[in-house]
Amino acid sequence: MTVEISNLTKTFDGQKVLNDISFSVKQGEIVGFLGPNGAGKSTTMKLVTGFLNLESGNISINGNSISKYPDLIKNKIGYLPEHNPLYLDMRVTDYLNYCGSLQKMSSSEIINRTKEMIKVCGLNKEKHKFIGELSKGYRQRVGIAQAMIHDPEILILDEPTTGLDPNQIIEIRKLIKSLGKEKTVILSTHILPEVEATCDRILIINNGEIVADGTAEDLKSAATAQETIKLRIDCDEIKEVENLISKITGVLTVDIRNEETGEILVKSSSNLNITKSIFELCVKNQWILHEMTPNQTKLEDIFRNLTLN
């Protein structure tokens, strides 16, 4: 199912939280929603799930507007809200049954899906416990299980991996990845490596506006006008090395980081491949090359550049 968001604007107490946001998410696509706190990620999600009313703009799912067919659309969406709210006074199975019944599932469907979700989310040992007795990681699994109980075609997950241990994070990412093959997934997170690991596409939102939209590779290549290479060369005359490298065409700056270990940072224009020239230079002068690492621009840097005002 395609989620189409057009010209979304939302104001709270005179403050514009979302300013004319438009994007669309296709079926089988996992979109990562990035942005600093208060950028409007959660607000967008609340609007898509129908919790908040539309102020201006439109959200449509497969061409059906959410304001016209709210019930139809709510049934197609599975939602894990921020902070993962749960009824702590209910048992896991009862809670999943309850969530299923609120999605208009038949009782036999509810029983089957609850069993399946307990299996998929690894809750088998905890299924008879009160949710209040569970640790944070297990609660998060219950939250994900309730979002998927009715086998929704669209999954909206607001920070799905917070509070999980590294093993659980990897499991949940795997789960999201496999779900994303046939479903439409929108997830928000603060953890940048997570977006790179799970998402097909990244949306960066800042001050209620979309500032970047594309795959991780797209964003990186757009952000990098120059390349940095880290070198470690074993040679008596480090000054000589600096001098010769700076003469290679395309090299912008050469910076000696540490004279004793021979650490050098070389900046160059990104489109010229200078690694070959450096290697040839080392061979010619019989310098021992210990390390040559192209320093890739990290998503962190792109994020900081785009969202730091």
């Binding site: 799930t49 129908g50 709510k74 939602y79 809200p81 709210p85 749960l86 009824y87 609120l102 999605q103």
Partner: peptide, 14 residues
Amino acid sequence: KSGTLELILTKSIS
């Protein structure tokens, strides 16, 4: 207070 309202009202219930 607990936020479950948001969860429930985004399900198919008015």
